[in-house]
Design a protein around this nucleic acid. Sequence first.
DNA 1: CTAACTGCAAAAACTTTGCACTTTT
DNA 2: AAAAGTGCAAAGTTTTTGCAGTTAG
Lengths: 146, 146
Amino acid sequence: MTDSQNRFEQLITRLRSRYRLTPQRVELIRLIAASEGHPSAHRLYDQIKVQFPTMSLATVYKTLDLLKELGEVLEISLRDDSHYDGNKPYPHPHLICMRCQQITDGELDKAVEGILQEVETSFGFRVLKHQLDFYGICLDCQNKSE
Amino acid sequence: MTDSQNRFEQLITRLRSRYRLTPQRVELIRLIAASEGHPSAHRLYDQIKVQFPTMSLATVYKTLDLLKELGEVLEISLRDDSHYDGNKPYPHPHLICMRCQQITDGELDKAVEGILQEVETSFGFRVLKHQLDFYGICLDCQNKSE
DNA sequence: CTAACTGCAAAAACTTTGCACTTTT
DNA sequence: AAAAGTGCAAAGTTTTTGCAGTTAG
């Protein structure tokens, strides 16, 4: 069983007890568990419409709100819109390619831990969450432009 | 002469040659040079309206766009709106208090330098800019709630 | 004087809300 | 059957755009 299938089952299980599993909801969960990237609400909407042509953006937002409240989805607020991560629903750095727009995770646990520590000790600031975004050109796009 | 006056003079000097110094523009520059915090477009608008009741939000945005293009203002895109820093117009970390909403600068040059280095070497990602936001409770608010 | 800027109104884009209808359980 | 969810339309926000009128240099 793939990671994405595992995550899907996990999310379904966690919702089942308290919330209704409508087909639209299940499909959104499937997509966000399967997504490697970090889709926007509109992207999810477009994808769900393939199977459920009546799907509305409002429902996408409502479902994402639910998943956010449950702590199962991380919202990444960017300048123009938000993107969502259903696999790592806790703050972590993102590398955002300004050419291909792809958003990838930055695995920088040690460095992030260190900087969080420093914010707490140097400023006495109690950090509850963070958003660390690095904008630039990803390796693929660098190679393509050669 | 205070820092804020210096910055004001600096901005005025840099604009003078190529752009027109309208009273509205001068007042926005004065405010953004004087501001300790990181005002939003709407906050600047409200402040400028005290002296220039006809000021429009459109003009605020146009002037901020100009200053951004010139590299004299840093835009900090948050979930609900953008805030602007006219004193340190280059990327740097921000501590955002979730109680009093104040945004302060995080002086973390060493740590930021290190993490940028790691993004470049570990992922081959060429960083062009970044936005590092830490959300939590500032020292003042922690003390108040005791 | 004229190129640049202002300010109004309209529009664009994202997100939220209200409510009647439908569906899950 | 009842509670919960969907989907439409309307509205709320922030930001952008177009254009006629005004003004700095």
